[in-house]
Simulated scan of single mutants.
Amino acid sequence: MKSTPMAGLRRRPAIRMRMALSYWGLFVASGAVLLILTVGLWQGQTTTTVHVPGTRAVTTHSSDLGKLLTVAGVALAVMAVVSLLFGWLVAGRFLAPIRAITTTARRISATNLHERLSLQGPDDDLKELADTFDELLARLERSFESERRFAASASHELRTPMTTMRVWLDVAMAKPGPLPPQLVSLGDRIRDELDHVDALLESLLILARTQQGPSDDRSRVALSTLTAAALQRHADTIAALPLHVDHRPGPQVWVTGSETLLTRMIGNVVDNAVRHNTPGGWIRVTTEQARLVIENTGTVLTPEDLGQLTEPFRRPDAERTGTGLGLSIVKAIAEAHNGALSLYARPAGGLRLVITLPFAGDDA
């Protein structure tokens, strides 16, 4: 079974506790050695001989050794507690940079690689570790940025020849006189492929734009309204299959973000529920708080299939419909809005998709 960070914490104490216990153990051991040496030296000097005139010499033994042991033992116990607390505080101070590195590493994703630790302090091992982590983030940011620029540039550059090919096709198909049926069929197939490539280029541009970080055109958006509009745009396809749609909007839900990107995100999930459904199936849509839940019938999905659904150009089945970027874009847009996408396979077949976004308040 795969281990988790929490399981690791249960197996052994945290490093801060181990450091504090190490300081405490070192102090107790040092105190015990010091106490043994003190007792040994004390015993070597506590036997005295007293000469009283007119009598024989009398040997006396000091009774202060017992008191010394008692006082020293109490002092050692008190200082042991103090050393444990002091060790805990010192360990926390030394481990603060490591906690900062851990917190930053958990928070950083592909959309905020610009963040840095910029750890201040002495030039020690922890400072070197933080600087190395910052250098790693810088290299990752340059790599991601290069990929995004390439995708955006390639998409833009390909639009011109695509438009030219479409114009040439329209000119060829518009020639006077009847055209051979084979030519007409070929022209329709080419036009369909051009439409597919256009959709793919648009999806690549949106994906590249989303992965660059939060959008500037942020506003307060009604999630329920966008969902209803997406269902309306797919009404003809839904009626043709036919599919039963159970839309439960509930109270109006507001989120903060780019209306353009959120519209595309919801359109993609509705399109996915329609495209990968079965004739006569159903779609259930629910919006509550800042959660959009869409369930649909369809083929049975395995855990491996779920892992492929959000990967670009990966499809779990043999059907080559769509661009292969639909749920990849959904995930990127959700994360760009500090949200999350969760996918669950329905035992009877189909998918349950949950999008969680930050809540912007109730309807005014």
Rank of each mutant, 00 (worst) to 15 (best):
V81F: 08
T297W: 01
V255A: 12
K175Y: 10
P242Q: 04
I283M: 10
L351W: 06
K127N: 13
A130C: 02
P303H: 00
P97M: 05
P97R: 04
A345Q: 00
S219I: 05
F94L: 15
R12P: 03
D125W: 10
A208Q: 01
P242M: 04
A222V: 05
I36T: 07
A290F: 02
A174M: 08
D246V: 04
T55C: 12
T46H: 13
F27W: 11
D246S: 07
R10A: 14
D305F: 00
A105W: 01
H244V: 14
V354W: 06
E288N: 12
T299C: 13
G40P: 00
D246H: 07
E335M: 01
P161M: 01
G307M: 04
P181Q: 09
L183Q: 13
D123L: 11
T46F: 14
R284M: 13
V300W: 03
G177V: 05
L119K: 03
A208W: 00
V221F: 02
P214C: 01
L292V: 02
R166Y: 06
S224W: 06
S22F: 15
L68G: 06
P312N: 03
D317S: 04
D198H: 06
V33N: 06
N112D: 00
L21C: 12
T210W: 00
D198M: 04
E128F: 15
Y23G: 15
G177L: 03
I333R: 04
A208D: 02
Q182C: 13
A20S: 07
E141P: 04
V293K: 09
R139D: 07
L241R: 14
L137H: 02
I206L: 05
M19H: 14
L89P: 09
T210I: 03
R99E: 05
V90L: 14
E157L: 13
L89D: 12
L9A: 10
V58M: 08
R12Y: 08
R291F: 13
M173A: 13
H114P: 01
M17T: 15
V255T: 12
K175V: 14
V330S: 05
V71N: 07
V78H: 13
V28E: 03
L205T: 11
W24T: 15
T299N: 14
S219K: 09
Q289W: 05
Q43R: 08
L200C: 03
D305Y: 00
P5S: 00
A110P: 09
S153T: 14
A72F: 06
G25S: 09
K175R: 15
T47R: 13
W42E: 11
R106G: 06
A273M: 06
